[in-house]
Write a protein that binds this DNA or RNA. Structure first.
Length: 295
DNA sequence: GTCCAGGATCGGA
DNA sequence: TCCGATCATGGA
């Protein structure tokens, strides 16, 4: 993708069918992006704040520099991966996956910071997205560092490791606080090397992550996919279970191949877009008939 | 009041 | 190995 620097902004030529901000930032992979009334998205990652918005032909990045864009945001938004090719490949699998894929063709898997991703998905268990976002926002404003623009960074493992359950009570994360503290202490004390996951085969990385308390199969898959960009990871939550039953009856999650994680995001996005189709007592609609006709 | 949410853990069958 | 209860919290 072609990016030019102009008047303090980065202008990236991109069609929404290839890079769609709303699809990317609202698909449940990240929790620190908010859309303002003017349509611009505001977010923070690795202690850097950004405003970004989408027009007909462009993605416009503001509040960053050319240097920071090239060395950080370009990687964060995974601009060097050819999603057009992957999307096409997944569309060829079958009609059900094509249905999901076309609903989210501009979705990209962000390359998020592993520690923040681990914490976020520990906090996600048995919880809903609006509340997860609220908890993380409060965690950052209470214990993160204030950035020049007034935003807060995500607190490091070392900072959280020094806290008690009582210290964490304002963030109202309930029973998850002990999991958060346990992970922070193990990592801060060097008993768990999160950085080492980067070099591990995915299967070994899975086992390693689930050794942390509060990290089961689902959370581990999310950390692998969103924090370590293992595109073969395939998280299954209650939404995915319903969507799999409806769209891919009898099929195993590991039948989706090397880009299973992206397929999973298409399916997840599609199921959230049409919750009525997978609720069990769905009324008969043209789309549900279409789904029924697939199998 | 009940049910549910990007689940994991625990004890008992 | 499998299954159900339980875990905080808040919105629907």
């Amino acid at each position: 993708m072609n990016a030019v620097y102009e008047n303090g902004k980065i202008l990236l030529s991109a069609d929404a069918s290839i890079f769609n901000l709303a699809q990317t930032l609202e698909c449940g992979q990240c929790f620190r992006w908010e859309c303002a009334e003017d349509g611009a998205w505001h977010g923070v990652s690795s202690g850097k704040a950004l405003r970004v918005r989408q027009t007909e032909q462009q993605i416009i990045f503001e509040g960053t520099t050319e240097e920071e864009f090239q060395t950080f945001w370009s990687d964060y938004f995974d601009l060097n991966t050819d999603y057009e090719r992957i999307h096409k490949k997944l569309c060829e699998r079958n009609a059900a996956l094509r249905l999901a894929a076309v609903s989210a063709s501009g979705l990209r898997i962000l390359r998020q910071e592993p520690w923040e991703t681990l914490c976020s998905f520990i906090l996600s268990q048995n919880n809903n997205i609006p509340r997860i976002k609220k908890i993380i926002e409060t965690l950052c404003s209470c214990f993160g560092e204030k950035l020049p623009g007034g935003e807060y960074s995500f607190p490091s493992a070392e900072v959280i490791a020094e806290l008690s359950e009582e210290d964490l009570s304002p963030i109202k994360c309930g029973f998850r606080s002990k999991y958060l503290l346990d992970a922070a202490k193990k990592i801060a004390e060097g008993k768990f090397d999160l950085h080492a996951i980067e070099m591990m085969p995915t299967e070994e990385a899975r086992k390693m992550l689930t050794m942390l308390r509060g990290v089961g199969p689902k959370v581990a898959e999310c950390v692998l996919l969103y924090g370590f960009h293992r595109l073969e990871a395939f998280p299954v939550d209650v939404w995915m279970t319903r969507a799999m039953t409806g769209l891919f009856p009898g099929e195993s999650p590991d039948s989706f191949g090397e880009y299973a994680g992206i397929a999973q995001q298409y399916i997840y996005y599609y199921s959230r877009l049409h919750p009525e189709l997978f609720s069990g007592d769905a009324p008969e609609t043209s789309t549900s008939k279409e789904i029924g006709a697939l199998s």
